[in-house]
């Protein structure tokens, strides 16, 4: 028989909800960030920081590399080894850095235009090499920094400043492209599904080899305004929530129900030799001769 005091104990011990403390990861004085009200990039960044925290990798061993665009401003806000480079070229810089310092955990933050248009060539070749790095594509289907031009992921029919009568170009599917090019971990998340996103980013970072996470998020200022979404909330609900289906749910749906929806979750995973390790083996073999 327990005493009343013992009965109360478990309740008192119950863990209080504590919000995640971002301050060790965010550079002092750098916030507010430049992203517009309602832009999903901030939500993605928070998921990324929580995922990084879970990996327990030292901040000194994390390098964040980016190109040009809204998403590419991420490194400026975080307290890692950070490199903000040229439009489309983040992966090339990241490749050089990773080969020079293989102990670094390299994360590339890039956008749909940066990764898939101007940087498309580097994107496929990075996937092919399978260097151990994580590529986060903040995919908002538009060029935000230059105020709203069509990107390789702007859906057909949608309006942009360079697609005033509706975009007629077919889109790239970031994940299919990455998988076809040889990436060994391919996933998709959305800013709306923040828990899922944190989890796939964590898995992506723990994966050995090139991991690609296509993150669907919203650009209310341009994409939203041009395409008659009234609020950031509406964008998140219509595009991220209703426009996607998790891999688990998808199994239970008919093909016609999946029509036009993007899959969320880990879409592909394989085991292939990692480039730095292969290079290291080559060095050892050559030196032994």
């Amino acid at each position: 028989m327990s005493t009343p005091a013992e009965d109360v104990k478990p309740l008192a011990k119950k863990k209080k909800k504590v919000p995640f403390n971002y301050s060790p990861y965010v550079r002092g004085g750098k916030l507010p960030h430049i992203w517009c009200p309602g832009c999903g990039h901030g939500i993605v960044l928070k998921c990324l920081l929580r995922a990084l925290h879970t990996t327990e990798i030292s901040k000194d061993d994390i390098a964040m590399v980016s190109g040009i665009g809204c998403s590419s401003r991420t490194p400026g806000y975080v307290d890692f080894n950070t490199l903000h480079t040229l439009h489309g070229r983040a992966l090339a810089y990241a490749t050089g850095l990773k080969m020079a310092k293989p102990k670094l955990k390299v994360i590339v933050t890039t956008g749909d235009g940066d990764a898939l248009a101007i940087g498309g060539n580097h994107f496929i070749h990075a996937c092919r090499r399978n260097l151990d790095m994580t590529i986060l594509v903040y995919n908002n289907s538009i060029y935000g920094m230059t105020s709203g031009q069509s990107s390789p992921t702007t859906p057909q029919g949608k309006i942009s400043t360079t697609g005033r009568y509706g975009n007629i170009e077919p889109t790239f599917d970031t994940c299919s492209l990455a998988q076809a090019a040889g990436a060994t971990f391919v996933a998709r998340g959305t800013a709306y599904h923040f828990q899922e996103l944190e989890k796939v980013i964590f898995e992506a970072m723990m994966h050995k080899g090139t991991s690609v996470v296509d993150v669907i998020d919203a650009c209310p200022t341009y994409y939203g305004r041009f395409n008659k979404y009234k609020t950031p909330t509406e964008m998140m609900e219509k595009i991220e929530k209703e426009g996607t289906v998790s891999v688990k749910q998808a199994d239970k749906l008919l093909p016609e129900e999946l029509q036009g929806k993007l899959l969320r979750g880990v879409l592909y995973k394989s085991d292939r030799p990692e480039y730095c390790e292969e290079y290291n083996k080559l060095v050892i073999a050559v030196q032994a001769k």
Binding site: V65, R89, A92, Y93, G96, K98, M99, A100, L104, N121
Partner: peptide
């Protein structure tokens, strides 16, 4: 393009 970017990345490494 990738070559010059890679050497700058390596230099920072």
């Amino acid at each position: 393009i990738a070559s010059i970017c890679a050497i700058a990345g390596a230099a920072l490494g």
